[in-house]
Structure formats: structure tokens, C-alpha cells
Amino acid sequence: MGIIAALVIGAIAGWLAGQIVRGAGFGLIGNIVVGIIGALVASWLLPQLGISLGGSAIRDIVNATIGAVVVLVILSLIRRA
């Protein structure tokens, strides 16, 4: 069940990040990958900044979305270069 939950959270986070960073979406599979990578980035970055959002599925989605936005912004900057 953990893999399915990670895929669903990744898909939601990737889609939300694609909506926030206009023109940076990658389709369903790409959004899942960006969401999962974003969750990994956020799990490292947010504690470094001293940010803790509690514990729930909503927190996981918010964390993954924040990380996915960071990943999409970096990818957008690389694409433009």
C-alpha cells in the first residue's frame, strides 16, 4: 500500500506544482516523477530551514508540492539556459 500511496501523493503534488509553475508540467507520468522527486527534495530541504508541518497525508502532499515546485523552477531555469 505504501507504493500506491507514494504514487498518488506524487501525482497530486506534481499536478499542483505544474499548476503553480505555469508551463512546466510533464503529463501524468512526468508529474508523478516530479512529485516523488519533490517529496525527496522537501524531506531534506524543509528540516534544514526549520520548517515542520506536523504529520498527515495533507502534510505529505504539501511537502511534496513545495519540493516539486522547487524542482520545476530549477528545471525551467535549466531549459531556458
Rank of each mutant, 00 (worst) to 15 (best):
G30E: 11
W44Q: 07
R80F: 12
A42I: 01
A17P: 03
A64C: 03
D60I: 00
I3T: 13
G2T: 11
L28W: 13
V34L: 07
I37H: 01
G67R: 00
L75V: 08
R79C: 14
N31R: 02
V73R: 07
I9F: 04
G55T: 07
A6M: 14
I51Y: 12
I74M: 08
S76N: 14
L7G: 11
I61R: 01
L28D: 12
Q48K: 06
A13T: 02
G55H: 08
A24H: 05
I4V: 08
L40C: 06
S56A: 12
V34H: 01
I78Q: 04
G10E: 03
V70M: 07
G10I: 11
L46N: 08
V70Y: 01
G55S: 09
A13N: 02
G10M: 03
L45N: 02
G14T: 12
G30W: 06
A64E: 00
L16A: 07
A64M: 01
A57F: 03
I58D: 05
I61T: 08
A17N: 03
N31V: 04
A64Q: 03
I78M: 14
L46F: 09
I4Y: 08
I3K: 10
R79N: 15
G23H: 08
G38V: 01
D60G: 10
V41L: 09
N31G: 09
L72S: 01
V8R: 04
S56D: 08
G27L: 12
L53M: 13
G30A: 12
V21N: 04
I36N: 03
G38K: 02
